[in-house]
Simulated scan of single mutants.
Amino acid sequence: MSNSNRAGAFLAAVMAAALSLSTAPPAAADGLTVFDWSGYEDPAFFPAYMEKYGSPPDFAFFGDEEEAFQKLRAGFKADVAHPCSQSVAKWRDAGLLEPLDTSRLSHWDDVLPGFKAMKGLMTSDDGTAWLIPFEWGNTVLTYRTDTVKPEEVASLKAFADPKFKDRVSIGDNVDDAYALAALAIGLKDWSKMTDEQFQAASDFLREVHQNVRLYWTDNTEVSQAMAAGEIDLAWAWNETAATLQSESVPVDIRRDTVEGLSTWVCGYVRLKGGTGSADQAYDYLNALTDPAIAPYMVETWGYGHANAKGMASVDPAILKQKGYGDVEAFMADTLFQSPLPNALRQKMIAEFEKIKSGY
């Protein structure tokens, strides 16, 4: 090939590449990394992002928020993360978070009013925004209906009943564990737990430990154990029952235990030091919080979506079936996993490790 032909071929290739870049969707390979719970990589949670960029962001996963916190403190880099209400202040105070620019959050004003009112959740005292809520739900008593009678699980104290020895599973998650224990000893506001109440809650978890077959780390693990008949009783997220019921496994949940419910709200933050595109980060947050996501969230995962317009669009019959028909009543009899004083949470973390080790 002559030099002139080579030059012409090279110019044509360059022009073709430029044309391809101008018409193809932007690639998520710019490095946007989402640090999340396993399962939330589901593209049905962010279809608008997929439509714009053509592929999902990169994902890294954590088993609980303390693991995530320690990993970030040790230098792990990501752009967006998914903590829950009780961790936001701790992450912020540790210097891990980048403030949110609410002018770039399309659905910021549509967040459920109850979440906006939660002190320290979305904003700090000076009005700086740190988290946009995404989903909310329960950690709830979940049981096999073919081996357990409803009257046997009318109280959360069933988790410590010797009849369920080696047939119980609770999460390897300090927040869910102490939410269970706080409810079991009669507390609805765990942020004011006294030393005596902390001891009583820890003693209850030691009783539960005698029955535990499995401390689960994600929904897949506990769902598989229940489906296989290895456990009869679990302290699990709404997602577990929704998953198993869709597979015709005989499972139900008790929202009406005498002690009430444990309710949590989680959302997304921007992490300091991330190297991904800020534009992509905000596009991702806006895709997640789009009201169109709410029906999928409620029907498939069994969780509530944080967007008020989205929740209003869900079929009322489905909302009632999933337990969200009367949100005010739902909130009234619940322990909200609200932010904890750091000293108390550190005590819980240390004590829970002892309990799981049999001490």
Rank of each mutant, 00 (worst) to 15 (best):
residue 311 M to P: 02
residue 263 T to W: 13
residue 281 A to F: 09
residue 302 G to H: 12
residue 313 S to G: 12
residue 276 G to T: 08
residue 296 Y to G: 03
residue 280 Q to P: 04
residue 292 A to R: 02
residue 269 V to A: 11
residue 278 A to H: 14
residue 293 I to Q: 14
residue 312 A to T: 11
residue 280 Q to Y: 07
residue 284 Y to C: 09
residue 310 G to S: 01
residue 290 D to F: 03
residue 278 A to P: 11
residue 271 L to P: 07
residue 280 Q to N: 09
residue 274 G to E: 11
residue 264 W to R: 00
residue 272 K to V: 01
residue 316 P to S: 11
residue 270 R to N: 05
residue 281 A to N: 04
residue 276 G to H: 11
residue 273 G to W: 03
residue 264 W to Q: 01
residue 283 D to L: 00
residue 267 G to K: 09
residue 295 P to F: 04
residue 293 I to G: 03
residue 315 D to Q: 14
residue 312 A to D: 15
residue 275 T to R: 15
residue 264 W to H: 06
residue 288 L to F: 14
residue 271 L to R: 14
residue 314 V to P: 00
residue 281 A to D: 08
residue 297 M to H: 07
residue 293 I to D: 06
residue 316 P to K: 12
residue 275 T to W: 10
residue 302 G to D: 10
residue 267 G to D: 08
residue 300 T to M: 03
residue 289 T to P: 00
residue 286 N to I: 08
residue 315 D to H: 10
residue 311 M to G: 04
residue 279 D to I: 10
residue 270 R to E: 07
residue 308 A to C: 04
residue 267 G to F: 10
residue 276 G to C: 07
residue 270 R to K: 13
residue 274 G to T: 06
residue 301 W to T: 05
residue 291 P to D: 14
residue 285 L to W: 09
residue 304 G to F: 08
residue 293 I to L: 13
residue 289 T to F: 00
residue 282 Y to Q: 14
residue 310 G to C: 02
residue 263 T to L: 15
residue 273 G to C: 08
residue 310 G to L: 03
residue 297 M to R: 05
residue 283 D to R: 02
residue 303 Y to K: 05
residue 288 L to P: 07
residue 278 A to V: 15
residue 283 D to Q: 02
residue 265 V to M: 02
residue 280 Q to I: 13
residue 313 S to M: 13
residue 264 W to D: 00
residue 303 Y to R: 04
residue 293 I to S: 06
residue 285 L to H: 04
residue 278 A to R: 15
residue 287 A to T: 15
residue 291 P to E: 15
residue 296 Y to C: 01
residue 267 G to Q: 12
residue 268 Y to E: 14
residue 278 A to G: 10
residue 263 T to M: 15
residue 287 A to E: 10
residue 304 G to D: 09
residue 300 T to Y: 10
residue 309 K to W: 03
residue 308 A to H: 06
residue 280 Q to L: 06
residue 291 P to M: 13
residue 313 S to Y: 13
residue 266 C to I: 00
residue 289 T to M: 01
residue 315 D to M: 13
residue 285 L to Q: 06
residue 272 K to T: 08
residue 271 L to D: 06
residue 285 L to Y: 08
residue 288 L to E: 12
residue 271 L to T: 09
residue 277 S to K: 06
residue 311 M to L: 09
residue 306 A to T: 14
residue 307 N to K: 07
residue 303 Y to F: 15
residue 316 P to R: 09
residue 263 T to K: 15
residue 311 M to N: 08
residue 289 T to A: 01
residue 295 P to H: 02
residue 304 G to Y: 09
residue 291 P to Y: 09
residue 274 G to V: 05
